[in-house]
């Protein structure tokens, strides 16, 4: 874990409320693995008070990229930052995706909304030549990273809620369709997912029905991000676990999706 001041190279709107930020942070770029996150102080003042967690979207040499949605007070302040300004970043944090899989396995990456963010970096690290990226969005104008996944050799499929691009419906319904067409078994395929809680819950249930391993990245409000405050715990089959330390990526078998978590 490092705490550094990273210079902003660019911070631009990409689509809808989504923004793409590049910072120069050689040490962080070198140390980060897919699925890990950064805890960023978006203001020098007390508003907002706590840091904000963002997944590592991509690494390009000594540059580190973040893809985020302007959703609240913290992300609004981040959106106002200009190139040349510095960000106080702690990272890389947490336990990321385990992608040491053999090259002949099939990989299904599934992201909903801003949940696509950590999957691009993951896709670059996965050796498999057989990669399917399922991108879920509300509407066509909010579909993220289609081009980027294609350029990494992924078979890209899109699902939009309104049907303005690709499959009409939830990205999890698209996942079911893909699995029905390919009929892969647990020996042949791994699912990696990030997105809203309801989507991840559905992904885990589909993966379980098909007996396929799945790794999902959860999101949780955090106070410290480094495992000290015990604020971001969720109920798992191993007991209470910290999303910032044992997570944010969990194996589907460990998650209970009980009433009292998240």
């Amino acid at each position: 874990m490092l705490q550094i001041k990273a210079r902003i190279i660019s911070n631009k709107r990409c689509k809808g409320n989504y923004r793409h930020c590049i910072v120069n942070a050689k040490s962080l770029a070198k140390a980060s693995n897919p699925g890990q996150f950064l805890n960023i102080r978006v203001s020098d003042g007390l508003k907002p008070f706590l840091r904000r967690p963002f997944s590592v979207h991509n690494i390009n040499g000594s540059n580190l990229e973040i893809l985020y949605e302007v959703a609240g007070e913290g992300t609004k302040l981040l959106a106002d930052k200009n190139p040349g300004e510095y960000l106080d970043i702690i990272g890389p944090l947490g336990h990321g995706f385990d992608c040491r899989q053999e090259a002949n396995r099939q990989t299904i990456l599934i992201g909903g909304g801003i949940g696509i963010a950590p999957l691009l970096f993951l896709s670059r690290k996965i050796k498999s030549k057989n990669k399917i990226a399922l991108i879920g969005a509300r509407t066509k104008s909010q579909v993220l990273c289609e081009k980027e996944f294609r350029s990494l050799g992924c078979d890209v499929k899109i699902a939009t809620d309104d049907g303005s691009a690709g499959f009409k419906g939830r990205v999890t319904a698209l996942l079911k369709k893909v699995l029905q067409a390919n009929r892969p078994t647990g020996q042949q395929v791994t699912i990696y997912a990030c997105g809203p809680r309801s989507m991840l819950k559905a992904v885990c249930s589909i993966a379980m029905q098909n007996n396929i391993p799945a790794q999902v990245s959860l999101e949780e409000h955090m106070s410290c991000g480094i495992g000290a405050c015990l604020g971001c715990v969720i109920k798992t089959r191993k007991g209470l676990e910290r999303v910032c330390k044992e997570g944010p990526v969990f194996n589907r078998e460990d998650l209970t999706w009980g009433k009292n978590e998240n």
């Binding site: 008070f49 409000h221 978590e261």
Partner: peptide
Amino acid sequence: HIGNLPARTCETPSGMLNSIGLE
């Protein structure tokens, strides 16, 4: 001691609330 169930922390103006419960 397992402590309290989540959500256990939240941000407030210039501060935060916690109910970890001595985990």
